[in-house]
Simulated scan of single mutants.
Amino acid sequence: MNVFPDFGGLGGIDDLNVAIGAALTIILIVAVLMIIISAIAWAIATSTGNPALGAKARAGVFVAVGAAILAGAGVSWVNWLIRVGEQL
C-alpha cells in the first residue's frame, strides 16, 4: 500500500510553499547575522574583561546556532516523516 499526501488537493499550496521558503530563508539569514554579531560582542567582551556582556553574547551565539539548526532540520524532518508514511 503506497500512502502519500496529496499536496495538489489544497488550493493555494504553491503560494504556501513560496511563503514557507521565504520565511525559512529570512530565519536562516537572521540566525547567521546574529551569530556574527554575538561572536563579535563575545570577543570584545572577553578581551576587555567584561564577564556579564560576555555571558550574554555567548548565550546569543548558542541561541542563534540552535535556531539555525532547528530551521534547517525542520525540512529534513518533514521529508523523513513523509518517507515513513509511504512505508506504513
Rank of each mutant, 00 (worst) to 15 (best):
P51F: 01
G72S: 08
P51W: 05
I44P: 00
L16Y: 10
A45K: 09
I35Q: 03
G66Q: 08
A57Q: 07
G60C: 06
F7M: 09
L10M: 14
M1I: 15
A59W: 00
G21E: 03
V84W: 07
V3F: 08
A52N: 12
A52L: 14
Q87G: 03
N79Y: 09
F62C: 07
A22P: 00
S47Y: 10
G66P: 02
T25Q: 07
L81S: 08
N79M: 11
G60P: 04
G72C: 09
V84S: 11
G8P: 00
L28T: 11
S47P: 04
V75F: 03
V63P: 02
V63T: 14
G72N: 02
W80F: 06
A52T: 15
W80P: 03
A22M: 06
L10T: 07
V78F: 11
N2E: 11
G60R: 10
L88V: 13
M34L: 02
A19H: 01
G9W: 04
L70F: 10
L10A: 12
I13S: 13
V63D: 00
P5Q: 11
F7L: 14
W77F: 13
D6R: 12
A73I: 07
G9I: 06
V61T: 08
G60M: 04
A57P: 01
S76H: 03
L88A: 15
A55D: 11
I40K: 14
I37Y: 02
V61N: 01
G12W: 09
V78W: 08
